[in-house]
């Protein structure tokens, strides 16, 4: 677990005069699971969006396997195939069946054999418990089912890194579990992932490393046990306190 596959150096992201990310640097090693935490509006999601060039960056560099990632990159579509992304709002394609949602990019973008991808897609659907939904349309699925399909869709591209952007934030509480279980399994298999989440106990269970971002900078980072039990900075302590409730009885 020492080969660096994603490297972020001094990343700066601005919207007009508003600086969202101000000098973020970190490396992601193969097989590592990094959870990005921080108060809302701190730029966590923007960070993920920069990593596959959905947002142009104003400073710094991002390298994936040594190749520069930015919105002007020559082989941008090639780079994006190596970075899977799952969105908060699923973003399945509503006019396609579950299976076609999964097949469209491997077949049309990667030019792989439809039958081969289909077999893989069905296997993955089986693993997330949705094989029988292969011919359903997204509108017929629950939020948790949609999100599991979205994860399978990203996996079928065989990405080097998977970016998960608050993937349970739009789900009813009882559906959060079924989605996070899928992600936990991916972590066990050694998938490299960068996860933005508000599920702290999940973060603690899955992370190899926690990045705590506030005010556009990495304020603190470390192993989850250290971060959650012994936060070093006042801002991290304050952030963790917002998740605790004191009894009023």
């Amino acid at each position: 677990m020492d080969e660096v596959i994603l490297s972020v150096k001094n990343l700066v992201k601005r919207f007009d005069d508003n600086t969202i990310l101000n000098g973020i640097s970190f490396d992601v090693r193969r097989g590592e699971v990094i959870v990005v935490l921080g108060p809302s509006g701190c730029g966590k999601s923007t960070l993920l969006r920069c990593l596959n060039a959905l947002e142009p960056i104003q400073g710094g560099e991002i390298f994936l396997n040594g190749q520069a990632v930015d919105s002007a990159a020559k082989d941008l579509t090639g780079l994006r195939q190596q970075i899977g992304m799952v969105f908060q709002s699923y973003e399945l394609f509503p006019h396609m069946s579950v299976l076609n949602n999964i097949l469209i990019a491997p077949v049309q973008v990667q030019k792989r054999q439809r039958e081969e991808v289909r077999a893989e897609a069905l296997q993955l659907l089986e693993r997330v418990g949705l094989r029988e939904k292969q011919n359903s349309f997204p509108r017929e699925l629950s939020g948790g089912q949609k999100q599991r399909v979205a994860i399978v869709r990203a996996l079928c591209m065989h990405p080097e890194v998977l970016l998960l952007d608050e993937i349970t934030a739009a789900l009813d509480p009882e559906m959060v579990r079924e989605v996070l279980d899928v992600v936990l399994n991916l972590a066990r298999e050694g998938k490299t992932m960068l996860i933005v989440t508000h599920e702290l106990s999940f973060a603690r269970a899955i992370a190899d490393r926690v990045l705590f971002i506030d005010g556009g900078k990495i304020v603190e980072q470390g192993k989850p046990a250290d971060f959650f039990d012994h936060p070093q900075t006042e801002r991290a302590k304050q952030f963790l306190r917002t998740f605790e409730y004191e009894s009023v009885k």
Binding site: T77, R80, F93
Partner: peptide, 13 residues
């Protein structure tokens, strides 16, 4: 807009 982004994130031109 997310439909465009989700397609682009899959590497579509």
């Amino acid at each position: 807009r997310h439909q465009y982004e989700s397609a682009e994130a899959l590497g579509m031109s």
